[in-house]
Each structure stands twice: as structure tokens, then as C-alpha cells.
Amino acid sequence: MSITQRGDELHFDENLFIVSKTDLQGRITYANDLFIQISGYQEKELIGAPHNILRHPDMPKAIFKILWERVQAGNEVFAYVKNRTKSNQYYWVHAYITPIIDTKTKQLIGYHSVRRAPSAKGIEVIAPLYKKMLDAEARGGIQASRTLLDNTLSQLKVSYDAFILSYE
């Protein structure tokens, strides 16, 4: 697989995809080979573990609140996410997360995520925004972070989805 390292940051080939599935509580039920390799965990360490095992402290909680609200409501969501590996390295992804619906019962049974390498332009824009959101969270909690994001999107006159997808 094509994973390169620059300092503590890992990069993967733009033609490859990180894939995982979780149950309704966010516990990993499937991880593809690239996910296993880049995370630094063994498959047996990942399966059954909460997906937030990869949560990097540079990620605003408000972004994960948006993700969970959307997928729990049965909607897809896109996001830029900075993940932390087992050895405390990191890697950015452009994530696409969808609910998994049982075709027979029409019930939500889990979540599916496909992540690809993010664009450099996307990271240039997203990383400073996430830093501002973290600062807002430190001062006023998740709602302050969400308000900062909403105000930013309002000033740009774009929806969250349009903003994220504009940096593909």
C-alpha cells in the first residue's frame, strides 16, 4: 500500500480508500486493509473498539456532533477529519459517511464510511477553521464552536455540505 510519512503526518495514495463500518454505537465492525495499516492498530484491536479510538485532539467536538446528528437521522455527511494513529502520528481524510439500512426491515443498523485523501487546498482552509472552533470550544463549549462554524458559513453564503464539497 502507498503510505508516506512527512514528520508525524501520514499520507496515502489519492487512488486508495479507507473503509470502515460501525454498529449503531460507533463500534467498528469492519476495517479494510488500508484502515488497519494507516491506523497502526491490528485488526483485532479495531474490531469492537469505538471508532473514536482514532479521534485526534485537534478535531472540534462540534464536527462530530454534526456527523452524528446527520447519520443518526438517516442522512449522508461529508467531513474533513484529522485522525490519530496508535503511535500518535496523524493523517487527514475527506470522509463520506452513510447510514446502513436493513433492506428488509428498513431499520438503521449501522454506519459505513469511505475516506479518501483530502485535497491540500481543503486542509489549508479546514485546519485553521478547526483551530478557531477548538478555541471557541475551550471558551464556550460545543455550542460556541458550532456558532462559529455557522457564522463562518453564513458569511461565505454556503451550506455546510457545499463548503466541504468545494474543497474536493
Rank of each mutant, 00 (worst) to 15 (best):
S2M: 08
Q5L: 10
Q5H: 10
R6V: 11
E9C: 08
F12G: 01
E14I: 10
N15K: 15
L16S: 11
V19Y: 09
V19I: 15
D23M: 04
L24F: 08
Q25P: 07
G26I: 03
T29Y: 00
T29S: 04
A31V: 13
N32G: 09
I36L: 10
Q37V: 11
I38N: 02
I38W: 06
G40A: 07
Q42V: 05
I47C: 04
I47N: 04
G48V: 06
A49R: 00
N52T: 03
N52K: 06
N52R: 09
I53L: 10
M59W: 14
P60T: 07
K61N: 13
K61H: 13
A62N: 06
K65C: 02
K65V: 09
I66C: 01
I66S: 00
W68Q: 12
E69N: 10
A73M: 01
V81I: 15
K82S: 06
K86E: 05
K86I: 07
Q89P: 02
Q89W: 04
Y90L: 03
V93M: 09
A95I: 03
Y96R: 09
Y96C: 05
Y96E: 03
Y96H: 13
T98P: 06
P99Y: 01
D102R: 11
T103F: 08
K106S: 12
Q107T: 13
I109T: 10
I109Q: 05
H112N: 12
V114A: 12
P118S: 00
S119C: 01
A120V: 05
E124W: 02
V125C: 12
I126G: 04
K132S: 13
A136Q: 13
A136S: 15
A138Y: 05
G140V: 05
G140W: 06
G140T: 04
G141N: 08
G141R: 04
I142G: 00
Q143I: 14
A144E: 06
A144H: 03
R146N: 07
L149D: 10
N151K: 15
T152V: 03
L153T: 13
L153N: 14
V158P: 06
Y160K: 05
E168G: 05
